[in-house]
Amino acid sequence: MDALMELFKNFPFLLLGAWETLKLTAFSVGIGVILGTFIGMGRLSKIKLISYPCTIYVEFLRGTPLLVQISLIYFGLPQLGIQLAPYPAAIVALGLNSGAYIAEIVRAGIQSIPKGQYEASRSLGLTHWQTMRYIILPQAFRNILPALGNEFITLTKDSSLASVIGVSELMRSGQFVISRTFQTFSIYFGIAFIYFLMTFVISRIVRYIERRMATA
């Protein structure tokens, strides 16, 4: 009972952390989508000078733990003279990481568009970039929306790793509450509940957009 009281009392505090988590995730997904779109297109380039670095980028970021990437950017970049505060460091790390996964999603999305679409557009005199922008990407994005939604959800959960560099998102806020109240289980349960609530709402929103786009 004591445990539940503490959870209720500290729930607003946890919600503040959840708000930080949402902001962190939204920024990171924003960077990830922009980065992923270009890297995804880059991987499909016939020019090796473009496609190879893009492939290496994707392989490296998918092949190393996010926790290591976050630590590298926060603790490693100062070696190169770049000092990032925890929050920007977390956004950069999460953005770079999701960029790699989104690049793969975008690549698959582009490849799912029949070759004839590209050829028809090019045969009308549109350039490669115009074709990507007006013909391929709009269709690809419609196809990959569910996958992008999944990535958003994954990142919402993964953003908890930003707690290791001291970003006061939901996970770390919860740890603060625990250290103050010593109520380990109930607070962790509260954290889990809020994470679930966030991912549930996000998945509903994505589904709603999906349906709207399908009828458009």
Partner: peptide
């Protein structure tokens, strides 16, 4: 190449209209 293609029209077996 884009100027060339603008001067030559092409019609495909599978139409290739833009579905969106």
């Amino acid at each position: 190449v884009n100027t060339l293609r603008a001067r030559i029209g092409m019609v495909f077996q599978l139409f290739n209209l833009f579905p969106h």
